[in-house]
Amino acid sequence: MKTPHVVVVMGVAGTGKTTIGPLLAAELGVPYAEGDDFHPSANIAKMSAGIPLGDADREPWLDAIGRWAHNRAGLGGVVSCSALKRIYRDRLRAAAPGVVFLHLTGDRELIERRMSERTGHFMPTALLDSQFTALQPLQCDETGVRVDVSGTPEAIIERAVAALRRLDQ
């Protein structure tokens, strides 16, 4: 990519944000930040109990990610953040106007299978329906790309980097 963007790797739980984010950051030569690390403990407790977060719960989390992205402006970086709703992405753009979104997409069956196979994560598979219900895909006026998550992480990264490079053309 021509300029060092801050890329927000977004999508519903189980699309591979935590896997793809660090690989993308390594490929681009920029730092990676795990979006889950920005959640207040109350949010993690709610999700662990199977309770979906509301918009108000997400505000401090989004603000923390926005500050990180703002501080990386002009330097580049990759951060994972579900960013399911347009208002969440608008909030991130307000904090860091140059962010670019990489929307990881995939078949619900594949995503549910991946979620059920992972260990040590606080987000239960039971919340996947609430994630798909909340999801508002990127709109044409939002800077970003959609990448399918089928295949290996390496294949996903290859598609992601190619799509992100096309944004700079």
Rank of each mutant, 00 (worst) to 15 (best):
P31G: 05
G11Q: 09
G66N: 09
G74V: 06
E112S: 13
V7R: 00
S41F: 08
D129G: 08
D107K: 10
G66K: 07
F132W: 15
L62N: 07
A33I: 02
A42M: 01
R159T: 07
E158Y: 02
V9G: 03
Q139T: 15
A13H: 03
A162W: 05
D129F: 06
G120Q: 03
T152I: 05
P4S: 13
G54Q: 05
I65E: 06
S116L: 12
L92A: 10
R146F: 09
A155V: 07
A56N: 10
A73V: 01
I44N: 03
D57G: 02
M123T: 02
W61D: 07
D36H: 11
L24N: 07
V149W: 01
I65K: 06
A73K: 12
L167H: 02
G21R: 04
P124M: 10
H103L: 13
G29I: 09
V30G: 02
A95V: 09
A45C: 06
G151D: 03
G74L: 11
E117C: 12
K46D: 02
M115K: 14
P60A: 09
P153C: 04
A155F: 01
R86V: 13
A73G: 13
R159A: 04
A94M: 08
S48K: 08
A69K: 13
A49W: 08
G16P: 03
H70D: 14
K2C: 06
P137H: 14
V100H: 03
E117K: 12
H5Y: 11
T105C: 11
A69R: 13
A162F: 06
V161Q: 10
Q169R: 14
E109N: 12
D57T: 02
R72N: 09
A163Y: 02
L62S: 05
A49V: 11
E154W: 02
F101R: 12
P4Y: 04
L164H: 00
P40L: 04
V78P: 00
R67M: 11
E109S: 14
A13F: 10
I20F: 04
E112L: 14
R93D: 08
G106I: 06
G106C: 04
P124N: 12
P97A: 01
P31M: 03
R166G: 09
P22H: 05
I156S: 03
R91I: 11
A56K: 12
H121A: 04
K17N: 01
K2D: 12
I157G: 07
V147N: 00
D37A: 15
V99C: 15
